[in-house]
Write a protein that binds this DNA or RNA. Sequence first.
RNA 1: AGAGGGUUGGCGGAGUGGUCGAACGCGGCGGUCUUGAAAACCGUUGUACCGAAAGGUACCGGGGGUUCGAAUCCCUCACCCUCUGCCA
Length: 435
Amino acid sequence: MLQISYIRENKEKVLAGLAKRHLQEAPQLIDKALALDDERRQLQQEYDRTQAEANTAAKAIGELMRSGRKEEAEQQKQAAATLKQRSKELSDQLKKTAAALQEVLYNIPNVPHDKVPAGTSEADNLVEKQWGELPSLPDDALPHWELIKEYDIIDFELGNKITGAGFPVYKKQGARLQRALINFFLDEAEKAGYIEVQPPILINEASGYGTGQLPDKEGQMYHVGEDNFYLIPTAEVPITNIYRDVILTEEQLPVRHVGYTPCFRREAGSWGAHVRGLNRLHQFDKVEIVQISHPDHSYQILEEMSAYIQSLLQKLALPYRVVVLCGGDLGFTSALTYDMEVYSAAQQKWLEVSSVSNFETFQANRLKLRYRTADKKTQLLHTLNGSALALPRIVAAILENNQTPEGIKVPEVLVPYCGFERLVKEGIIDKKGAV
RNA sequence: AGAGGGUUGGCGGAGUGGUCGAACGCGGCGGUCUUGAAAACCGUUGUACCGAAAGGUACCGGGGGUUCGAAUCCCUCACCCUCUGCCA
């Protein structure tokens, strides 16, 4: 959420920035916010004045009561009651106006960074860098959804039976590969100075609002109605919310965390014929890195995080490219986002495996996440996060890119974690419904 | 899940209707003393909103209510503790 004071003082800049998002109603939203802010401040002043009067009156009555002048006190109560009535009205109005303002602010996305290109869709994103050679596969190379059947390592049918579409069962070497990737990612992050946390994967409403998934992505999260909890769509939510309502000292900065969690996304409306296999799931595993930074250093940290994520892809020997998201494709809460896309050779497609973003103060404002400056003032911090990495598409690329007649080669760095060098086909046996 | 008890400032802990943003202790910061440090002593020490400022207002787990006046009384929700029950 943008700070209303910032909008007040930088209206043109905000409008120019939001124009890049092609948000039709941005100017109206901004004007509405400013009007409500004006109203709110007037009401606040009037309310404060009335309360001051009422407080004085109440004290006077107390004084009279104590000195035994009951009748005089009774008389004063009348006047005080009127004030109280007025004050109640003002307070109700103030609350209504403040809530209305909040509602408008909740619906204004973050102002994109200068570097964010104009553009309306994915097609307008800017490819900033490409690394690695694209593998050339033989003509009979298979897409990963065929490979997982041939090698019998990931089972969508079983997932359908247990839960539904998009909840696969990982089996045998497939399960082992998942575990290897998670451990590899966690170990690398710890080496890079991130402190590991294992947060809850159900969150309350306050946490959802804190990082901006609510109200923006209400329909995209699984909701546990009984307790009003949400299943996390990313570890960003619980990890960043550790720091909700916290005032840090400068010495504590930057805060660096890594966490592995399963992630749950309803993906309502985003399914289509082109989405096959591991490309899109309702439940998937992800290792996430989160940083909380001094406002002066956040863009330097963003680059650092981007470089770190790229180092993982390089170690896995997966060709990738770095894409700067354009205004139309940029997430609601982000000021600048890089997507890392891995080349999945059999599909001949670039698959997003990481998204690293600087939210500047957008989340910190909702979270009330601040630090104390040298002159003892409080100031909002910047929050950042990135996937490091999301597993399914990494698995898809490994399977497709590394297929050979002798099996699927496991990237060297993963061999110690997997305990095998390649995935191999077992003899076809009648499983009779078992794993 | 049932019964009872709790939730106060960075921490501990007073406060059961009026002058309480809140005693006291610890911690933190500044100072006196000291060659330096410790001890002792003195002072200071929450957040947000409105305001150019002076200052004002709000906040004692969250929300609502009673009252001229609420940390204090009532309702409600959340969380914590104890006992009982259930359970990985």
